[in-house]
Design a protein around this nucleic acid. Structure first.
Lengths: 202, 202
DNA sequence: CACTCCGCATGACAAATGTCAGAGGCCTGA
DNA sequence: TCAGGCCTCTGACATTTGTCATGCGGAGTG
């Protein structure tokens, strides 16, 4: 029984190479390729693959977003996310979106082929190291508002702008930022943003 | 005449896939692979390849640093840099380090093989789009000190810390930051850092 | 030589940010 | 029902920034 694959990655070099390598496995066949989120969705609709191998970062819509849509439209299609930069939060988001596998690009093609089979068989696979990171990072201590405000502060916007965009008073924004900063053990909002990013809490 | 290649990329998946694809070209042979900067250097010394294909971002030492060392130790070895995130400044740094080719990972393997041949023949190749970006970004308007201070400010450190690390007075640091911010047309140091990063000026 | 940059500094002022205390409203679980 | 958490706000304060004027010395230039 062959497994029909959809490959989505914006880096042509990698996608092509991957397609070539996976095709060497006689039980795997690449039926579609895509270079962006929306394209991946379209290809999935057209070809209804058994397993979708998605890069986490793609133009248009990232792997997790695509996975969410896919879950609704093609429940039979298992999703496997492949990523370069394994941030704990992404893993959590991905699992919540119904993704069946999550691996870093540091695995070998051999291993990836095995994982594709595992996922296709209905099992889950999460890279052990990423899983350990995710667990040690734990859950976000931030409340919804704190996270929201921190997010808006991410690109260095002044408090006034954040307040406007969040429809809050400036004082409230400062309070949230302050508590977020202290919860994260940061020195100021900017390092707080960085920390939250690293742990995938924003 | 065959071209002997060194492949360096920390992502096993990509490296392996790339090796497989490039090996399909009968005039190319991969003689060594590496997963980090230092390893790439060691492999280069051991195998003396004709062309080194280096990922820009690797643990240990990035592609440009490896290229610099390589230039000194193995002048006959041409260096080709491959990158996911093409930031203008990297290109400039790379060319200054004597790199002969600079391409994004969005090219196809076919194209990459051609580029490897071009580089091996002693010519240069720079991705047109990256080149255009680099030209439109232009040269950094920042003085050496401004850039240095901005760099230190990058992770959100307070002025006091920057001043200490740069052995400057706090007032001076603020002045440099201020002028850097105005030169970049930013609203504050943090957006300035972001802008400078995007343009490869830090 | 005078002029002009640049690096480096100081001091002072305005604006933004971080920190606290307090206070009311809403919702949830005991 | 009541305690406790979160959301929201205000006001006041200390601290950190951003901005500006100004000064000095060195390097390079006309």
């Amino acid at each position: 029984m062959t497994v029909r694959l959809l490959l989505a990655d914006d880096e042509h070099l990698i996608r092509g190479a991957l397609a070539a390598l996976l095709s060497l496995e006689e039980d795997l066949v690449v039926v579609a390729e895509a270079a962006s989120g929306p394209e991946a969705l379209a290809m999935a609709r057209a070809h209804e693959p058994d397993v979708a191998v998605l890069d986490l970062q793609m133009p248009g819509a990232d792997g997790v977003k695509v996975a969410t849509s896919l879950r609704a439209e093609l429940p039979g299609c298992r999703v496997l996310i492949v990523t370069s930069h394994g941030r704990p939060g992404h893993l959590k988001r991905a699992l919540e979106a119904g993704v069946r596998g999550f691996v870093p690009k540091t695995v070998s093609a051999q291993k990836l082929a095995e994982i594709i089979r595992t996922v296709h068989a209905g099992n889950r696979y999460v890279d052990p190291e990423l899983a350990a990171d995710a667990i040690s990072a734990g859950d976000s201590p931030l409340t919804a508002r704190e996270a929201e405000v921190l997010e808006l502060a991410a690109d260095g916007a002044p408090v006034a702008e954040i307040a406007e965009r969040a429809a809050l008073s400036q004082g409230t924004v400062r309070n949230y930022l302050s508590s977020a900063v202290s919860k994260l053990g940061a020195e100021n909002r900017h390092t707080a943003v960085r920390l939250a990013r690293e742990r995938g809490w924003v």
